[in-house]
């Protein structure tokens, strides 16, 4: 919570215990994993405890690599690297998309295999000993939800990250933010992910100067219409963007400055009833 003013309109915060724990954990995690900086990503609430999630960016072509870390509120001072799921586990996690989190990372979720399923040969370690496959736990489910949510709600104002002359996507240190008028349009908020839209993909690889808004997908194109809401704070100094497909996703930008915050504070479940609710 570096800039508390940005959090006010969202009505949310980390409590002192989490904030203090993370202050240590973010620094520690960055140093141990050789990343320039870790940023707070969000909080997924479970029934008994909540998960705190952080992200670190490392330069990579064509798009910066995101590394996620997680911990629970009760152990906020120590971050663990998020699991990376293989296709099999990702497919299983997808079936659990609408199941609420318990808050205990060790909760097992049984994988029901179809009849006649033959498990792939177990991987072996350097001595040729087979490694038993890891049990699917809530920790794995968390990894899947975070990657899906990040893909859909991690957003930046136009110009905050740019594609430089060598076609590296880098943070724009001289970013002056959006004007008042621009801040009211979803077109100027971009998904911070490797683009999915063909037009953006081409812009990212085409030679020459890449304009700020061209190489990332903007929110205006997302379906259904109305899944994003943008409005100004009463004093017109901040713009606030919320997703209604992922309630709890919150973005706030201080107009005409480079300050913004994009976080997720929710139960981790998609709102599949959105079409009834708009």
């Amino acid at each position: 919570m570096e800039n508390p003013k940005l959090w006010g309109p969202g009505g949310l915060c980390l409590n002192i215990q989490e904030d203090a724990g993370l202050e240590t954990a973010l620094l520690d995690g960055a140093l141990k994993n050789n990343l320039p900086k870790l940023e707070f990503w969000g909080k997924i609430t479970g029934t008994t405890d909540s998960y705190l999630i952080a992200v670190g960016y490392s330069p990579e072509y064509p798009f910066p690599k995101k590394t996620f870390f997680w911990t629970t509120t009760s152990e906020a001072h120590e971050l663990k690297v998020m699991k990376v799921l293989d296709d099999d586990y990702a497919a299983h996690a997808k079936t659990l998309m609408n199941t609420p989190f318990t808050g205990d990372p060790a909760t097992p979720y049984e994988i029901v295999r179809p009849e006649g399923y033959e498990p792939p040969p177990p991987k072996t370690d350097e001595n040729g000993e087979p490694i038993p496959p890891e049990e699917f736990r809530e920790e794995h489910k968390l990894a899947y939800h975070v990657s899906v949510i990040d893909n859909e709600v991690s957003i930046i104002p136009k110009g905050a990250w740019i594609c430089d002359a060598t076609h590296q996507v880098i943070k724009n240190v001289t970013n002056c933010g959006l004007t008042h008028e621009a801040a009211g349009s979803l077109r100027n908020y971009l998904h911070f992910r490797y683009p999915e839209n063909d037009r953006s993909k081409q812009a990212l690889v085409k030679p020459g100067v890449v304009r700020h808004g061209d190489f990332l997908d903007n929110l205006e194109d997302d379906a259904p219409k109305g899944c994003w809401g943008v409005h100004y704070s009463p004093d017109a100094k901040y713009s606030i963007v919320r997703s209604f497909y992922w309630p709890g996703s919150y973005f706030c930008h201080e107009i005409k400055t480079g300050n913004y915050v994009s976080v997720y504070f929710g139960d981790g479940l998609p709102n599949e009833d959105i079409l009834f609710m708009l």
Partner: peptide, 8 residues
Amino acid sequence: EWTGVNFG
């Protein structure tokens, strides 16, 4: 604030 609610 302990519950994670903060209005600024």
